[in-house]
Design a binder for these strands. Structure first.
Lengths: 138, 138
DNA sequence: TGCCCATACAACCGCATAGTGATATTGCGT
DNA sequence: ACGCAATATCACTATGCGGTTGTATGGGCA
């Protein structure tokens, strides 16, 4: 088994961020690692899969059905998610079950969702103000 | 000013996620929006820029110096960050200052950093066990 | 007004990767 | 042992996007 690039990044992170990486001062080589992690979550298909696993483990076939994605595609995405440590693999006979390895992923998504929700509200208000302005014009 | 794709996504999110999107049940069309947001943070260069803004507003020239990135490149990244609502633009004469619009970005990064740090520790332990096993072999 | 500096934008190249179809692998039942 | 079903992998295409170079825009200053 070859060392994944992710593993190499791990090492580089460990070097200049000795055991206490709270991003207090961002260690430069850690950025690549953090970016790589975000990249895994930056695809709607993969979020769909994460979503599908929200209510417990599912095997690949189930995930395919739930998401409507192609089989090869799902397989690749699951590999990425597993490598990132977001899901864990559990082979049971001919079926392979995947599980959310750490619910903190949902924390992340929730934070983002809250942020976006606030943005939408602000934008809606701005549109209101703009419309009012336009009506005053005519 | 044309409506950005981000703005369109906002609307679609607002539709099926009425004002209370805590990701309790993930609304399908919101996934695209969330993914798009993560994508903005999924590039080391952009994280570098976010980093550079950690200690207060900076103008573009300063950011270029701090990050060592090309001017056009920084400009593009700043545009993306601004569109995502991560930074805000403030033109002062000939200079344009950018600021972190919401410190929650750092919360996000910190969560990820903690997660990765735990992963590294676990991996280090596994490597130890593996080495011990190898020595026992020879 | 005309120049200079800071910033944004357009055009381009190269690479990474999402999606797909075909094929390989592997475990189970007969 | 054979065949089938589940999953992984490979080869390929197309799209997206990061980086760079060159150019445009626009504010300040002489």
């Amino acid at each position: 088994m070859a060392a994944t690039s992710s593993e190499l990044f791990m090492q580089s992170l460990a070097e200049d961020c000795d055991n206490d990486c709270l991003l207090a001062k961002l260690p430069p080589s850690a950025l690549k690692l953090v970016a790589e992690f975000f990249k895994v979550l930056s695809e709607a298909s993969r979020l769909q899969i994460v979503c599908a696993l929200r209510n417990g483990p599912k095997n690949v076939t189930q995930i395919i059905e739930m998401t409507g994605l192609g089989q090869a595609n799902v397989s690749k995405h699951l590999k990425m998610l597993a490598q990132a440590g977001i899901v864990s693999r559990d082979q049971q006979g001919v079926c392979v079950f995947y599980t959310i390895a750490n619910p903190f992923v949902f924390e992340l998504c929730e934070l983002v969702c809250n942020f976006l929700s606030i943005q939408i509200q602000q934008q809606a208000e701005q549109i209101k103000v703009l419309d009012a302005f336009r009506q005053g014009e005519e």
